[in-house]
């Protein structure tokens, strides 16, 4: 045993072994790089495809008409291609969702990061993850068949399909996300700041609101913006509970369609590949992609800035 060990320990690696090892290393590195680069390729594929199909669409419809028209009826005989009704539906629903998720998420984040005892936090955080994990189609069922009837007992003139119920439900859905991104930012604030404030006699609430919140502000703002991006891109809740008629209104009691709901509606029918109806979903998709891209980049930048300040 010890002989074998000694003889092995003295063996120098052969040149052949070293060469093979180097080759394996390079091949592995190449494969891993390709995998990482695949994410860039996906983005390129998305942009290429959306732009290509949209360009064919814009050969038929002027950009001015697309951006300023107030009627969206691409599937009717008298087709109109103004995206404003879809944008208004999207913004009203995302706005309602933010009214729920921003105050709720910020308070939950402050509570978790500054108030909650350690063990309670260990219970609440997985629970919030579960809330985030509920399938959106189930949330859609909930919005249509539970939240809307309940709201109708308070608001008699609420339509069966409306923007209020899906807006509220989307708000509940993104609340855990807003809370967890904000809490990450708050926990990145150095302990010294807290301790300095406590030493001056501040209460926990004063520390939370006057020290932590301003210090973590760019991270909290990032949470709002990324939450907005999620609300804008949410599909199933809206497709199920808001009705599918494009409707240029800001009244949340009425039914409306969003950009995402329109894409779902078209996909359910069978439009021939290459028809103008087929191309509208790519033009709508490009609009949606650009809106969320801007939000995501701003949010990413704000988060990175917070990290640079404190790390």
């Amino acid at each position: 045993m010890s002989d074998a060990f000694a003889s092995h320990a003295c063996v120098q690696p052969t040149k052949q072994f070293l060469r093979r090892r180097a080759v394996a290393g390079w091949v592995a590195r190449g494969i891993l790089f390709l995998a990482a680069f695949a994410s860039v390729a996906i983005t390129f594929a998305i942009v290429y495809l959306l732009v290509r199909e949209s360009l064919t669409f814009f050969e038929h419809v002027s950009i001015v008409e697309f951006l300023t028209g107030t009627q969206w009826t691409p599937l009717f005989f008298d087709a109109q291609y103004g995206i404003l009704p879809l944008v208004s539906g999207t913004l009203v629903i995302a706005g309602i969702a933010l009214l729920v998720a921003v105050p709720g998420g910020t308070i939950v984040a402050l509570y978790l990061s500054e108030f909650a005892p350690h063990r309670l936090r260990e219970v609440i955080k997985p629970f919030l993850e579960i809330l985030e994990g509920v399938p959106t189609v189930v949330y859609g069922y909930f919005a249509l068949l539970f939240v809307t009837p309940v709201l109708q007992t308070f608001i008699p003139n609420l339509w069966g399909f409306n923007m209020l119920a899906p807006g509220l439900v989307v708000g509940i859905m993104i609340l855990p996300y807003v809370a967890s991104v904000s809490e990450d930012a708050m926990r990145a604030v150095p302990k010294d700041l807290r301790e300095g404030a406590y030493a001056m006699g501040a209460t926990r609430l004063q520390v939370a609101v006057r020290v932590i919140l301003p210090a973590a502000f760019s991270g909290v703002a990032a949470a709002f913006i990324l939450g907005m991006s999620r609300a804008v891109g949410e599909t199933m809740v809206v497709a199920i509970a808001a009705g599918l008629q494009p409707n240029l209104t800001l009244n949340p009691l009425e039914p409306a369609a969003t950009i995402t709901a329109y894409i779902v509606q078209v996909s359910l029918g069978d439009l021939p590949h290459g028809s103008i109806g087929y191309q509208t979903i790519f033009a709508a998709g490009l609009t949606l992609f650009l809106i969320t891209l801007i939000f995501n980049l701003v949010g990413f930048h704000l988060r990175r800035r917070l990290r640079e300040v404190y790390e």
């Binding site: 860039v40 998305i46 991006s229 999620r230 891109g233 894409i263 998709g285 949606l288 992609f289 969320t292």
Partner: peptide
């Protein structure tokens, strides 16, 4: 690549659907 991965996580799922449909 880093910015990309972060951004991909925020792309609405329906956009992936359009990618799959077209591609």
């Amino acid at each position: 690549i880093e910015i990309n991965v972060t951004n991909l996580a925020g792309v609405p799922s329906i956009i992936y659907g359009l990618l799959a449909l077209g591609l």
